[in-house]
Amino acid sequence: MISDQPELALDRIECAARTLGAGGLVAFPTETVYGLGADAENVGAVERVFAVKGRPTTHPLIVHLGGAHQLAEWAADVPDTAHLIAERFWPGPLTLVLRRADRVPRAVTGGLDTVALRVPNHPVALETLTAFGGGVAAPSANRFGEVSPTTARHVREGLGADVDYVLDGGPCSVGVESTIVDLTGEPAILRPGGVSREDLEHVLGRAVSVRAKSAVRVPGQFPSHYAPRARVLLVEPDRVLDNAELLVGRGRRVGVLLPPEFAGDAASCSARHVIAVPDSAAQYAQRLYEFLHDFDRHECEVIVASLPSPEGIGSAIADRLGRAAGPRDQASRDSDRFNGR
């Protein structure tokens, strides 16, 4: 059953919880992106998540909880650091990687002895998790490697009838996935996201490393990820317009993510679709995936963009754009190669 009603009635929460309890898949809103949820202890339901997404079964899922009080039920040997971080950032866009408790199926963890846990900061998600009572394993509600959904419409367009129930909670407020922090050793960020490195360091009172590679597999580590159908070309900010015009001259259908400092030049750009990036990094993050979806709707072949400053949530934006621009296959790389790339 697919829900198309925007109202957040209690019966819709209960319907979502019942669907999860029956082994079904529920797309639900969080503050970051929409998740494709299944009962984390139902191996058959979890395996269906992987099948619907087309996701490698070795790629772990995040287990969503209704509150920090459930942490010890899902993780073993929880360090004080985990409680400190959870107290400050949960509910919120931060995921903790810890040793898994026995109740966590290896189907959820990709065969690893670690589990990724978070408490989302969205009233609909929290009500659903409370009504369900258990953990919900959920990646983003889209096909693997594609742009994450930040509205219920994105979910329906991407997954269609493969989802048993879509719970519409409006657009996501953060817009990029959670920060993932490995706490199985010294704290380290494995994926930048909605909580900045600076905020995490402030709470911990120490420097926190960011690992490009880790023995602990977590979501979002593939070189090509979060990718629209259009190719993404990253150049220096002052080269965005020149590269866009070069591609237009070659007959390409071009989209442009125009840096804020060049917003005044948008009207003079002959690209098919031009989006001026918001001045606020938080607003940019919130709308980044909306922008990428929009370029696909305009049937752009290539998107010309630049990376923002990596401070704060800008680090997450840069990570997502970098992976959206990652290599897909040799043929497409060759077809998109030109001066300035």
Rank of each mutant, 00 (worst) to 15 (best):
Q5N: 05
P6A: 03
A9R: 07
D11S: 12
A16S: 02
A40P: 08
V43G: 01
G44M: 03
F50S: 08
A51K: 15
G54V: 15
P56Q: 05
H59Y: 13
L61R: 14
I62C: 13
Q70C: 11
A72H: 06
W74I: 10
D77N: 01
T81E: 15
A82S: 13
H83S: 15
W90H: 13
G92Y: 05
P93I: 05
P105K: 03
G111R: 14
L112N: 13
T114K: 02
P120E: 00
P123I: 00
E127G: 07
V136N: 00
A138C: 04
S140Q: 13
A141G: 14
R143L: 11
G145V: 12
T151K: 03
V166F: 06
V181C: 06
A188Y: 04
R191N: 05
R191H: 13
P192K: 12
V195N: 07
D199R: 15
V203H: 11
R206G: 15
S209H: 12
R211Y: 00
A212R: 10
K213T: 11
A215M: 01
R217C: 11
V218R: 08
S224R: 10
S224Y: 09
P228Q: 04
R229S: 14
A230P: 06
V232F: 08
E236Q: 07
L241S: 12
A244Q: 09
L247S: 04
R250Y: 08
V254Q: 01
V256G: 06
P259F: 04
P259H: 06
R272K: 07
R272L: 07
I275N: 00
A281K: 12
Q283D: 14
L288T: 11
D296M: 02
R297F: 01
E301H: 09
P308W: 03
I317E: 14
L321C: 11
R328A: 07
Q330P: 00
D334H: 03
G340T: 06
